[in-house]
Design a binder for these strands. Structure first.
Lengths: 234, 234
DNA sequence: ACCCAACTTTGCGGAAGCACAAACAGCGGC
DNA sequence: GCCGCTGTTTGTGCTTCCGCAAAGTTGGGT
């Protein structure tokens, strides 16, 4: 049988405040799984049989509308839970989770969630706190979409990504996983064309750099000014 | 001392599955309060000292951006909790709650929330379920804002309002509380001008009727077709 | 080394909806 | 019954951003 070490997950927010022995207990019912780049961890509207912890890699959570349009709801970083539909009393996944790069996840049977929450209250509380945070995020996004125009929305999205997953380099903060203009467009409710135009314009101003499936923010402060609209119309 | 009868709240979703004696217990620590039309129940960024149950009336939950723009996040109907910031570990209210008409609310001290949740698990679960539902609502709203154009968004908003608070009349489904074009605009991320134009256009098509601070959906089915875009571009 | 697929850039026209502006009702207060 | 406030209608440019189209680029697979 596969032995997993408690130290694997001991530092991670969802498991804050849980004793190593208990962590070992939880790990005994977990199954590690590798997910290839581009593969789905779960799909929208499928029955929610499992919940997951991302150990390594990056996951994109996408919703698809009835007429086929896609919206990127969020990116998941290592240490975050995903597929916690059962925590909210749902029986199907509300979205699709795609591995943006090769990922390592832990998988638990969905029925275990309520068991875990009952046995280790802090686990339940941590989860609900994340749900609360995600609610805030979603509301922030609604407000942005309602009040800001495209340029600022894209700027905000990039800054958020940099904050979540930025790696400092000589040229600035590099967003640490492959991301296309199309992806950015789907995060901000615009088209890849508009995103492309914006990025090239910003590149000329020295705000960002980039390349294929890659974005690097060379002047975070300048971009922040743009995002918060304290910049006179070009 | 003020005696409140358990039957006041016994049918309401947040208190599902709780024994009448326990309801009486909960009510002993509640304080009823009348709120005049237009008055605030709580304000954005104020310390979250209390949570509330709406017994009667309608409440509009509004977020204001740093530059003064407002977005209507949701309308609260009787039987719903509001101001449950503490359930999510927040110390301040994330939005402002305004009485759209004269309201009657119950007020509890915020610290009681965790006590209630601990003592009556189903109360906690019910709350978290609502939080989950609100997260879904918010995500749906994000998707609408990202993918649909104004006309459909407004149509969806009206249908949602009618569903929440519609009263059947001879002329159709009347939205059962005063609401201005400005309010609808702030729900859908547009301007009151555009909303006004849309409503008059729809009135000519016989889809809606209305008046000052009032909207009535005369042809719900037609409006639904419009909302779901199964209507050839005019 | 080549080819192919996926990603990106760029141009041009057009449409949706916003900003600005001004006139018009309905309703409560005095 | 009149006044004024608040909400609504309607008109006219005009900006922003999308849709369509086509060409250019990059990297991976064989």
């Amino acid at each position: 049988m596969n032995r997993l070490d408690p130290s694997l997950i001991s530092g991670m927010p969802p498991f804050e405040g849980i004793a190593p022995d208990d962590l070992a207990d939880m790990l005994r019912s977990a199954r590690p799984s590798r997910v290839k780049e581009g593969a789905a961890i779960f799909g929208q509207d499928e029955p929610a049989q499992s919940f997951f912890l991302l150990l390594d890699g990056r996951v994109r959570v996408v919703k698809t509308t009835p007429d086929g349009q896609q919206v990127v709801m969020r990116y998941i970083m290592p240490g975050e839970l995903l597929g916690i539909a059962q925590a909210l009393g749902r029986s199907t996944y509300p979205a699709t989770a795609l591995a943006v790069m090769d990922c390592l996840v832990l998988v638990w049977n969905g029925q275990l969630w309520s068991e875990f929450a009952a046995r280790w209250p802090s686990f339940g509380q941590n989860t609900y706190k994340t749900v609360g945070l995600r609610l805030q995020d979603a509301q922030t996004q609604v407000i942005e979409m309602a009040t800001e125009q495209v340029e600022r929305r894209v700027a905000h999205a990039l800054l958020r990504l940099a904050h979540q997953s930025g790696r400092k380099t000589d040229n600035g903060i590099l967003i640490d996983f492959p991301i296309s203009r199309q992806d950015i467009a789907e995060m901000t409710g615009t088209t890849l064309h508009t995103v492309s135009r914006l990025l090239t314009a910003w590149e000329e101003k020295g705000l960002v750099g980039g390349g294929r499936m890659q974005v690097c923010i060379t002047d975070p402060h300048g971009l922040l000014l743009l995002a918060d609209g304290r910049t006179g119309r070009s």
